[in-house]
Each structure stands twice: as C-alpha cells, then as structure tokens.
C-alpha cells in the first residue's frame, strides 16, 4: 500500500471506480438526451423518470415473472422504448413548431406523473436487485479489488456508447438521421418518413435511459426517485459538453464521473457540487460548452 497525499491507493482506486460507473450512467443518459434533442428539439426532462422505469421494469420481471437479468437487459429498454414512442406519438408530436420551453414543461410534467405513481406504490425506500450469478465475485488486481459486475457495467456501457456513435456517424441509417436533423423538409422530399424516424429516435434515446436503469439496478437500489436526482447532474453534464456532438457527450460523461470520484477522495464535502462548479467554470470560458457550437 503506497499512501499518496495521505490517501491510500486502495481508497483512491475504489473511488475512481465508483466515478467511472457514475460516468458510464452520465454518458448513457446524456447521449440519449443529445440524440433526442437533435431530432425533436426537446430537452427530455422525463429522462430520469424513464431511467427509473427501466430499473423497475427489470425488478418486476424478476419478482413477478422470474425473468432474470440477461433477458431484462433487452426487454426493459424495449418496453420503456415502446412506452416512450406512445408518449411521442400522442403528446410530443403536438408541440412541433412551438417554443422549446413547452417540450421541457411537458416532459417535466410527465416525470412528475411517473415518479408520483411509483412513489405511491413503493414509497421512497429502495428495492434490492441481486447481481446476476455469472457476474458475482471479483478479481484482485493487486492494487485494488474489482467486482466483476462493476467491470461489466463500465465495459458494456462504453461499448453501447461507442456503438451508438458508430451507428450515427458512420452508417447509412445514421446519415439519414443526421440529414433529418439538419433539414427535415428536404429529407422528407427524398422519400424518408421523417415522423416515423422521429418516433424511433425518441424510442431509442429513451431505451438508452432504461438500459442505464437496468445496469444501475444491482449497484444502487431500485428507488422511485433514483432518476430525479440524477437528471439534474446529467443536465449539467450536457451543458458542459454541449449538445452538438455525440462523442462529446460520451467523453464528458465519463470525465465528469472521474472528476466526481476524485473529489470524493480529496474533498468529500464538494462531491455533490463539483459537477455544477465545473459547469459554471466552463460557461465562463466557453458559453456553448466544450464540444458545442454556438446556438
């Protein structure tokens, strides 16, 4: 054990690991927000509530239908995505052409409804969700103990993020998507069904949030308000990164998770606030965010 500035490397790496895991969730959520904002021009305030729904979906599957973690990893995002697409078709689509703030207000209302309903049935306490058998235990790396599930969470979310980046930036479908973001009218003129593309995009962004929820279920407890606290931090992450770039939101997400982890080691009092302080500093230097273009 080599102490560094009075802190053992053990504690340092443990907090960095927690930071990376939080960063993975920030990245998944801000990625979904960026994709949705690009297509719908809506900042999805319900993102945190849908993340929570993803976790509860997995919990329900396990406790009522005895369907385990691995199928839930696919089924929960799918279920929440379908719910999201219904919301998009019935409500969000009616806000087209209105000021951006109405989208924010509508999704804020949705978040209140969803969180209120879950709180009615589950109170504020958490429901435990077991780590899947395959990922129990951990590896001793010499300088720290690495639980398998946490390693899996980081690796899997990173893979999902990079895959999304690849799909949007490098494939034909992504090219159509970017075209529809840039100029929906012209893209429609080329025979692309843009309204359907918008619905699917919302479903995909929301599905990413639900996926983060399933990944989080075994680490944190499944609570009705687990997303409410997270979404504000994710908003700050989005402001820091700027919503213009997919890679930007991934990098910013992980980086801020790490910064938060480091703060927990060296100055724990500021762990909750460091992301917001970083946001204020970034805004002083670059009002459009690190990777953003000036609106």
């Amino acid at each position: 054990m080599i102490p560094l500035l009075g802190i053992t490397t053990q504690a340092l790496f443990a907090q960095l690991l927690v930071g990376l895991i939080n960063g993975a969730f920030y990245a998944l959520l801000s990625l979904g927000l960026a994709v949705i904002f690009g297509m719908l021009n809506i900042v999805n305030f319900a993102h945190g509530a849908l993340y929570m729904m993803g976790a509860f979906f997995a919990w329900f599957l396990l406790n009522t239908l005895h369907i385990g973690y691995w199928p839930a990893l696919l089924l929960a995002p799918l279920g929440v995505a379908i719910f999201g697409m219904i919301v998009e078709r019935t409500m969000l689509t009616r806000l087209q052409g209105l000021d951006h703030i109405y989208g924010l207000l509508l999704t804020f209302g949705l978040a209140l409804i969803i969180q209120g309903l879950f709180q009615n049935y589950f109170g504020s306490s958490g429901q435990p969700y077991p780590v899947p058998d395959l990922l129990k235990g951990g590896a001793n790396l010499g300088f720290m103990y690495l639980p398998n599930y946490r390693a899996w969470t980081i690796a899997f979310s990173l893979a999902v993020c990079l895959l999304t980046w690849f799909a949007i930036e490098k494939t034909r479908l992504g090219a159509v998507l970017r075209a529809a973001t840039e100029n929906p009218q012209l893209t429609r003129a080329f025979g692309v069904n843009v309204p359907r593309l918008i619905t699917l995009t919302y479903g995909f962004g929301v599905g990413l949030a639900a996926l983060a929820g399933v990944l989080a279920a075994p680490i944190y407890q499944v609570r009705p308000l687990m997303g409410a606290d997270l979404i504000v931090v994710v908003f700050a992450v989005v402001v820091i990164g700027g919503m213009g770039s997919i890679m930007g939101s991934i990098v910013t997400g992980f980086a801020l998770g790490l910064i938060e982890g480091l703060t927990k080691v060296f100055y724990p009092q500021a762990a909750n606030t460091v992301v917001f302080v970083v946001m204020a500093l970034v805004l002083l230097v670059k009002p459009a965010g690190l990777f953003g273009r000036k609106a």
Binding site: L105, L106, F108, G109, L110, L112, I113, G116, L117, N120
Partner: peptide, 16 residues
C-alpha cells in the same frame, strides 16, 4: 404522492 401526479397531469394538460 397523488398531489405530485395531479400536478404533473396539470402540467401536461396545460401545455397540450
């Protein structure tokens, strides 16, 4: 918590 649900519903209805 129904207050929260109803407030959310008022938000949604008002905006729509």
């Amino acid at each position: 918590q129904w207050v929260m649900v109803i407030q959310g519903a008022i938000f949604v209805i008002s905006v729509l």
